[in-house]
Nucleic acid binder design. Structure first.
Lengths: 154, 154
DNA sequence: GACAATTCAATTGTGCACGATCTAAATCAC
DNA sequence: GTGATTTAGATCGTGCACAATTGAATTGTC
């Protein structure tokens, strides 16, 4: 008997997997943001950190890390780069010398105005590809929570 | 006059941004896959490459890169690691010496069976957080395409 | 055939992302 | 109070991700 040409479909096609769709959408966002953020001198993760700090500074590295789900191994060097860029200050807390408090500088605060136009650029890029009803947002949050819950269990 | 405590809402809240939701879901997937793939000895991007090759090997680095939207700077070292692990072979094409063809080894082919259980693990993790109707998948594809189209234009 | 332009992969440098480990500070137990 | 435990960040090593450059092979043009 000759071998059949029909592929053994033991694994789903790459393009039909949810994980791959999320992976690709994430890359597409990163790429889109890269050009939009270039003139601010920020990378995409740095922009997320600034967004968090514009929402309220004086937070600890740990609190920031929990909000972004990033650990100190990622944040410490990133925050140092933001400090070198003159956008934030990092100073040890007086009450608890273990923690480092993050504060916006004048320049960091000022960048908020310029950064405001970025989501608008994004909105135009997305156009009408996404319903503005937040359905996709809700779906993604549910997905994330389910994955994290499962990861905790084992 | 004292300064008001009302935050100037010039930027949307981090948690309500689509880009952040995609970013977080992507991380959650990566984390979930990390543990599921540990026993296969693969990282998540390596698993995606294997998925693509299980779907048909003998492809060029360029073709693989287009499918995954990754460039040679990312793929070359990753593929070398897969080669060292004994899962693939990389050989220059006879007809066109510029291109490198990727082939599965016996071990790489065999790994397909073990890899088959990974999406099942994932499906269980996701549970009923995502409708199985592919709505989310479709939404993400549309989002990705819109972002890529916009990135091309400028 | 000679030479310019293009194409493919590899390389280099920067920056995330995370596990593992380390140090210092704070907290707990007694 | 002394010692054990816990906590917050920093550091190190590995592995993606991508821009930019390089070098070799191919293709196109004359």
């Amino acid at each position: 008997m000759t071998e059949t040409k029909v592929p053994r479909r033991t694994t789903a096609r790459l393009e039909e997997q949810l994980c791959f769709a999320v992976y690709q959408a994430g890359h597409a966002f990163t790429r889109m943001y890269r050009s939009a953020l270039a003139e601010l001198g920020l990378t995409y993760p740095q922009y997320l950190v600034m967004l968090a700090l514009w929402d309220g500074d004086g937070v600890t590295v740990k609190a920031l890390g929990e909000r972004l789900s990033l650990d100190s191994g990622t944040l410490t060097p990133l925050l140092k780069r933001l400090e070198v860029a003159g956008l934030i200050r990092r100073e040890r807390s007086r009450e608890d010398e273990r923690q480092v408090l993050l504060h916006l500088t004048e320049a960091g605060e000022a960048l908020r105005e310029k950064g405001g136009c970025v989501p608008i650029t994004m909105g135009r890029a997305i156009g009408d590809a996404v319903h503005p009803d937040g359905r996709l947002l809700g779906d993604l949050k549910r997905l994330r929570d389910a994955l994290l819950k499962a990861a905790d269990q084992d």
